[in-house]
Amino acid sequence: MKRSQKLAYKREFEASKKDGKPFFPYAVAHDLIVATATLGVVIAFAVIFRVEIGEPVNPATTDFVPRPEWYFFFLFELLKIFEGEDALTPVIMATFIVPNLLMVLLIIWPFIDRGPERRIWRRPVSVVTAIVVIFMLAYLTEEGANSPGGAVAADELEIPGIENFPEAEAGFELYLLNGCASCHMINGVGAPGPGPDLSKEGEKGRTDEWQIGHLKNPPEFVPGSSMPAFTNFTDQQYQELAVFLNGLGTDFN
């Protein structure tokens, strides 16, 4: 900002204070009214919508599909938007690049928009940007609220046609019991990330050996993979999981 503009601001602000009023009691009174009303609303909510008690944690049975608090819905939805063929890039976009970019932009905003103009209708670019961002956040939150991957247990996950493949059914059991659904989604049930949607995994044409190797040591098959290695299954179980995964989107579903 130019020196003359800074001086103009100072002169203007001094003028606004000259015929101003004291902080106490005027501002304090307004503050107290709004803050008390808000506290009242919070207490009313606490009384009307009583807190509930859920089920105690059981890390062994992970057939539970998680759902974050509503203020993180937009991040969750972001994961779905960037879903694509390639598993890694979209996850990095949604978990890292977009949120961090937004956060940094938010923090340094005053150093980007430096003009002295404060009247709303004279700052069309920043005001329109803000409105677009607000609508996007509202939309993503709303989508998250309606998402089918809500607080449902993973055993509500249905895969039509799987009953004809006993080996795949056993693999499906393992999938539910080992927390895969807390990173993956099938037919809209499960977490939208960080792992890719597996509904059409079979269509990728992976071999069973590939799937087994990937489960044992993901980074060897997908460089940079952040999926944990699953090393404790028996050979039989690895085979069942592989058949289940490669059948998704082809043999059943």
């Binding site: 105690p56 890390p59 998680p66 974050p68 608090e69 978990t95 960080p194």
Partner: peptide, 23 residues
């Protein structure tokens, strides 16, 4: 420490882990 909170946090931390470099 109920199922819902536990698994939601597992996912949040997993998502953090999938970020590059520092994740």
């Amino acid at each position: 420490w109920d199922q819902k909170a536990y698994w939601a946090t597992v996912v949040a931390v997993n998502i953090t882990a999938s970020a590059p470099i520092l994740g």
